[in-house]
Lab assay of single mutants.
Amino acid sequence: MASQGTKRSYEQMETDGERQNATEIRASVGKMIGGIGRFYIQMCTELKLSDYEGRLIQNSLTIERMVLSAFDERRNKYLEEHPSAGKDPKKTGGPIYRRVNGKWMRELILYDKEEIRRIWRQANNGDDATAGLTHMMIWHSNLNDATYQRTRALVRTGMDPRMCSLMQGSTLPRRSGAAGAAVKGVGTMVMELVRMIKRGINDRNFWRGENGRKTRIAYERMCNILKGKFQTAAQKAMMDQVRESRNPGNAEFEDLTFLARSALILRGSVAHKSCLPACVYGPAVASGYDFEREGYSLVGIDPFRLLQNSQVYSLIRPNENPAHKSQLVWMACHSAAFEDLRVLSFIKGTKVLPRGKLSTRGVQIASNENMETMESSTLELRSRYWAIRTRSGGNTNQQRASAGQISIQPTFSVQRNLPFDRTTIMAAFNGNTEGRTSDMRTEIIRMMESARPEDVSFQGRGVFELSDEKAASPIVPSFDMSNEGSYFFGDNAEEYDN
């Protein structure tokens, strides 16, 4: 783990906690998980779902989305002020799938948001429990990260689609708070800032007046979040320049895209947490497990152990491969979309394939898809080993990566060399080191050039047997250095459309 220093740990961010010791953190995270579980059980009762239907990941996603929508204050306010045809701002819903006479049927349900809020609060001892809501947002974000390569979004903001390893959390809503900021990748933060800068260039009043003052505060806050992700002084200094700019424009845009590229080699610290679907927490609570009393951590053995003992089902389209669908969801559960496939294969105990080789589309089923041909199958979400999630980018030494994705962002704290394609990355730096950030740029390029592919990161860190909950005997895996390590390699994943 990167030293926490003055930073709060993510469990504290996750639970809005002030400084807590490890036991208190485990208890408050457990409380959050228990609340999600209780809410899910109650919703299944309301909807009269069978046990099997309640364990269907598509039903879980609909129920999670309903509660997130019920608590989305800004959108609710907007919907009330701008009524649109056929949208009731006070209601929320989605597809629920039921097994009827041996076939899967889709039923569109509609609930009062007020009623959903009441059920959620009741499951969370009367609190709004925003930490639990954020947790579900991060699960949705991790699922998107594993399912889609955001080529269009990258290109629109002047970045290269091969930089997708920097895009963790790119679909997280803005209201996801400190826990959300911690899991956002460098590219995601750059993209958010670039969008602001572009608006400022096109709209003279963007930075002016009372609204402009708020915009400015948001801009500086985002700059500080991004600065905190960088691990070298030169990158941090460049972020200070971007933040202090009187009138952010093209120079800042250039600096930010430069920094994003540099992060492929001088990786930023991005938190990883295993956020599971509500249909995993519900049955665990129903079986009598007391998360608050037992304590829970999002970055240790607990999620692995929970998945070892969970039964989750998914709808499967006619030509999809259930094992591939399982891999997709497994990666999402562990926030591992940008991790090295060699490491993932070792931990999972079966070969993890790149996205383009998977015969599976996303987990969600569109409303126009034919239910007649839908089957369902068990998702295999178990693992051979477990490993500690990392909050750091690993040290800054790398190795060759593949054509589709030119770097990785480690999820697990496991000893290995970190793949990246130096030639491709360095070719993108057209040696432009003039301007006010020239000395920093020169320094950053120097550090990137001296990074050695064969150097090892996370020295001495290994994986653990599932029986080793105290992480007492690390097993340090050895990897084939020459092997392909990137998930979005030469990829044809669908595009994420909101």
Rank of each mutant, 00 (worst) to 15 (best):
S407P: 00
E254N: 07
A233I: 15
L276F: 13
G485E: 13
T45F: 07
G200W: 11
I41Q: 06
Y385S: 09
E73P: 00
E294Q: 14
Q398D: 00
Y10T: 01
A131H: 08
I201S: 05
R8G: 08
C333E: 02
E18P: 14
M331Q: 07
F230H: 07
L108W: 07
A251K: 02
W104L: 13
E449V: 09
E252C: 03
D290V: 08
T151C: 03
L61N: 14
L68Y: 03
P453I: 14
V194Q: 01
N321L: 13
R162L: 11
I36K: 09
A237P: 04
P277F: 04
S335W: 00
L344M: 07
P277D: 04
N492H: 13
T360L: 10
R452D: 04
L193G: 10
S376H: 12
Y10V: 05
A123T: 11
T378H: 02
F464E: 06
W386G: 10
S269C: 15
W104M: 13
K470C: 06
S60M: 04
S367F: 13
A233Q: 07
V299F: 11
S467H: 01
T350D: 00
L266W: 06
T424I: 14
R65F: 12
P283D: 00
N144I: 11
N370L: 14
E80M: 01
A493F: 09
N370D: 12
N319R: 14
F258P: 02
Y148C: 13
S310N: 11
E375G: 12
R99T: 10
R174W: 11
M238P: 01
K103H: 12
E372M: 07
A153R: 08
A234T: 15
G485T: 01
Q58L: 07
E114W: 07
T257I: 14
R436S: 06
E81V: 03
N321H: 03
R416D: 04
S467I: 11
K229I: 11
A493S: 09
L110S: 03
M371Q: 14
P419Y: 02
G268I: 13
N124Y: 08
E210V: 09
A336S: 07
F230L: 14
A22S: 14
Y97V: 00
G5L: 02
K7Q: 09
E369F: 11
A403P: 06
I116T: 08
V299S: 10
G180D: 11
R65P: 00
E369K: 11
R118K: 15
M196D: 02
E380G: 10
S84F: 07
G431E: 07
H272S: 07
S367D: 01
A123C: 11
L353E: 02
K214A: 09
S69R: 03
Y289W: 03
N417H: 13
G356H: 12
S170A: 09
F346E: 01
E192T: 07
R416F: 02
M159H: 02
N309D: 05
E465R: 05
S269K: 07
A129N: 13
C164Q: 15
A284N: 00
E14K: 11
E369S: 07
Q409C: 11
S335D: 00
D255K: 07
Y496P: 01
W120T: 04
G282S: 15
K31H: 15
E294M: 13
I225R: 01
I116E: 03
I445V: 15
P410A: 13
G431W: 10
T437W: 09
D480K: 05
I406M: 15
E434K: 08
R75G: 11
M136Y: 05
A263Q: 08
P410E: 08
V329H: 00
I408N: 10
S287V: 03
S473K: 14
T390M: 04
N202P: 01
V343Y: 03
I408D: 00
N430Y: 13
F464Q: 05
R361N: 04
Q20D: 02
R246L: 09
Y487L: 02
L49C: 10
R19K: 02
K229M: 06
L298A: 06
G394L: 11
S269F: 05
Y296A: 05
